[in-house]
Design a protein around this nucleic acid. Sequence first.
DNA 1: TGCCTAGCACTACGATCGTCGTAGAGTCCG
DNA 2: CGGACTCTACGACGATCGTAGTGCTAGGCA
Lengths: 192, 192
Amino acid sequence: MANRRETLLDAAIAVLGERGIHALTHRTIDTAAGLPTGSTSNHFRTRDALFDAVVERFAARERANWEEIAVRMHPTTPRELAHALTVFAQTATGPQRTLTLARYAILVEAGIRPSLRAQLTVTGARVNAWFMNWLRIAGSTDPERDGPIIMNHWTGIILHQLAIPDPAFDPSEQISALVTSVIRSRPAEAPA
Amino acid sequence: MANRRETLLDAAIAVLGERGIHALTHRTIDTAAGLPTGSTSNHFRTRDALFDAVVERFAARERANWEEIAVRMHPTTPRELAHALTVFAQTATGPQRTLTLARYAILVEAGIRPSLRAQLTVTGARVNAWFMNWLRIAGSTDPERDGPIIMNHWTGIILHQLAIPDPAFDPSEQISALVTSVIRSRPAEAPA
DNA sequence: TGCCTAGCACTACGATCGTCGTAGAGTCCG
DNA sequence: CGGACTCTACGACGATCGTAGTGCTAGGCA
């Protein structure tokens, strides 16, 4: 716990994912962080300032997380890419469920409070660039077209699994079918 | 305004989409509905009961909305299907932006409060069935595989456009590329 | 050593929230 | 005509929230 400020923000992210935006108050964060009442209020005087900082912290953590993955991952086939994306999806809806819920809560809130969008725009562009790079080395001839398609599908499949969880659901088939279909199709082709 | 209860719930959905979950209180809804203070509290004693009712109302409206579309729409080609989905996406992020934001706020909340999931499960299954039917008549050989893929992508592309709006963004290319790629691909095929 | 600044713990206050109780107005049925 | 029931309006309560203020303490720097 080097920085007390980051301790508070991480506790806030946990509260956000576990109990929702409505429970995100100064005192709740103090309790969750195991710090005396008033700590959050000292660092973030208003609720708006608090939420801005939470989003900034979350975006930074997300960038770091994807960057760590990016340096390790080099899928050379669509199949490998699909497998990696499946593992990511299972992690997001499983062990990191709370963190992922916080992510979607932030996204929805950004739809209402435009001031939150700057951080998300930066992170989104970065993650999108990695996505496109993976698609390129996995064999896509048009990563700029395929990247957003797969990323948006990935976003949707995870949200669906968060909102209406099905323990028996296996995302691998859906993701594999999408990745192979999209990568193999050529943009110039026209349907019969 | 036949039913006062439904008036209140529709006002609640509007508040949810315009100001977020945190602003969804009994008194806020009273004000938004133009009714005297206490009206919401009379119909929904606790906040949980209120939110349950909001979700139920929203799910019912969503079913009715899709059903109305379903009886009119008969896409006979992937291109027609893609065009229709594009129009839906533009409507969801444009004229119906507030309503769509409410939808995603509810989905996120359902990830935290399992009691909300029943209504969403019913509506999701219904919409999914229509999606698969459209895919079938548009030429898909495996609607049960393609339906969830396209619906999840649709969910993701809209959430992204809500959270980080780009006025210049045109979803038609992405949706067309996805729909044609997925429908044309055959499940039995294996990559080289 | 002594000051000065930042971070911290703690308290306080008005506003708002969730919830409950009550009483009047309207409605239906015998 | 009267009684039972439902819907509505309104007020009140304790709890919690957002925010601001005050003083203590520790560590850097002259």
